[in-house]
Write a protein that binds this DNA or RNA. Structure first.
Length: 433
RNA sequence: GGGGACGUAGUUCAGUUGGUUAGAACGCUGCCCUGUCACGGCAGAGGCCGCGGGUUCGAGUCCCGUCGUCCCCGCCA
């Protein structure tokens, strides 16, 4: 007999079906037991009133994997109105010890460190699983929208020869007795691919060797990267990003309504055009409204970003806000300056509910500009030659951005810690599981 | 790298100005209960109070060190 998923039981009322999954809970009354069986699609109640079967259940540990063949019955006092009667139960995988913490009590109540130590078990909790269903839907929505706009998905190397664009620390590794590094971003490669495909994107991990210890940083995270050619300036990139975010949110509503409900997600305010303020305007708002003068600082602090996020929600009814025109001194060498004021960048950050979600902008596209930019920063040309060749042989005006997937999920769900949006997070002191 | 907080049962946490035998809930074990749905009831097991040192008649509680964890800043997505 073929296996039926628990979510499909409603279409099989009065039929005999076979379901299989994990012993989520067993409620034992004297003459009847209720076995709650969980599979990836849901939880079903199995009514056990056979004496031998109840004795077998009494000895069973939770999370044992069972196969149950029985009749689907519509019963108004059953959870969900359905249950399985006259079950024949087979143990497929017996658990021989007590589970580390309960996952069958609704809300999960466990410290994040304990949870992550037992991730392979804890992630089975339906709420935790729902987080990663949403994460998958974000990646799917990202791909679907960009595919429809003529983008090509690429896979660029994660093992690279030279340390990279910005100051971020990289992980060094031994590559056949040569030094290599884990890529801190696909930046160079996606730019090179603009000269091949014009429009590209990538969904892949990036690696940062920064010893940060915060609730919003990971040393390995998934970067949703986009790069495309023949743009006017950074505003072309911002327009594409806005429509992409809106398309992803719509995709979530269409494809994961159950998960959005289970996790009680407040869908973001995302107006047709995301509001934008310049870096200097942002500083003025902070001074005006929050009475802190940061006008001599070259960047916004996390608190400043939270304030701007709050301001955008109140004044523009938007959970997303662009901050444009950061000082060039804080941006990497490939950044295109504002032609009207070369001290500032044709770039942007996108804040989502007060946290940096995206960085992007227009890039330099002329070979000579790269030579100048590298020279001004005291960097040698030689290690960048493979990259620079793309510009020597013709590169259109282009730009792009990178979205932090786990940050998207964290902010969407209002999670306390980005590790909750990561299956197996890598941070400064966690390398396993 | 700088700063702050916290380490007590398998888990999440209480634990008074230092005072005798360290508690609760969930989980676990046994018994009872035909309809539970966070099932309920009764009974029970389970603790080097992170580790080391100190102060004190006496330390889970105060001090120092150490290890671990969480958070903030820096850096970034």
């Amino acid at each position: 007999m073929q296996r039926t998923l628990i979510q499909d039981l409603a279409q099989n009322v009065t039929q005999t079906v076979r379901i299989a999954g994990w012993a989520h809970n067993i409620r034992q009354l004297s003459k009847v037991n209720f076995l709650l069986l969980r599979d990836a699609s849901g939880v079903a109640q199995v009514v056990v009133d056979d004496k031998a079967a109840m004795q077998m259940l009494a000895k069973l540990h939770l999370e044992s994997v069972l196969q149950v063949t029985g009749k689907v019955v519509a019963q108004k006092n059953a959870p969900g109105g359905l249950e399985i009667h006259s079950p024949e139960i087979t143990v497929l995988s017996e658990v021989k010890e007590v589970v580390p913490f309960p996952i069958n009590k609704g809300e999960l109540n466990v410290a994040i460190d304990t949870f992550l130590d037992n991730a392979a078990y804890g992630l089975r909790h339906p709420d935790r699983r729902a987080i990663f269903k949403l994460s998958a839907a974000i990646m799917r929505g990202f791909r679907t929208h960009l595919d429809s706009r003529g983008f090509t998905e690429v896979a660029t190397p994660k093992v690279v020869a030279s340390a990279t664009e910005s100051g971020a620390n990289v992980f060094a590794l031994n590559y056949f007795d040569r030094k290599a590094y884990l890529a801190q971003s696909p930046q160079f490669y996606k730019q090179m691919m603009v000269s091949v495909f014009e429009r590209v994107y990538e969904v892949a991990p990036v690696f940062r060797a920064e010893p940060h210890a915060t609730s919003r940083h990971l040393n390995e995270y998934v970067s949703l990267d986009v790069e495309f050619g023949f743009i006017q300036d950074h505003t072309t990139v911002m327009a594409l990003l806005s429509s992409l975010i809106r398309a992803v949110l719509q995709h979530l509503k269409d494809s994961t309504p159950t998960e959005l409900e289970v996790l009680k997600v407040n869908m973001p305010l995302a107006p047709e055009t995301f509001p934008a303020v310049s870096f200097k305007e942002a500083q003025a708002i902070i001074k005006d409204r929050y009475k802190e003068d940061c006008s001599h600082e070259p960047d916004l602090s996390p608190q400043h970003e939270r304030w701007i996020g709050e301001w955008a929600r109140e004044v523009h009814q938007s959970d997303y806000i662009f901050v444009t025109g950061y000082p060039m001194s804080k941006r990497p060498f490939y950044t295109h300056p504002d032609p009207n004021d070369r001290a500032y960048a044709n770039g942007f950050d996108l804040l989502f509910r007060g946290m940096e979600l995206v960085t992007g902008g227009q890039r330099l596209h002329l070979y000579d500009d790269y030579v100048t930019a590298l020279t001004e920063r005291g960097l040698p040309l030689e290690p960048f030659q493979g990259y620079l060749d793309a510009f020597r042989f013709g590169m259109p005006p282009h730009g792009g951005f990178a979205i932090g997937l786990e940050r998207f999920v964290t902010q969407l769900l209002g999670l306390q810690n980005i590790r909750e949006a990561t299956l197996f997070p890598r941070d400064i002191n966690r390398l396993t599981p």
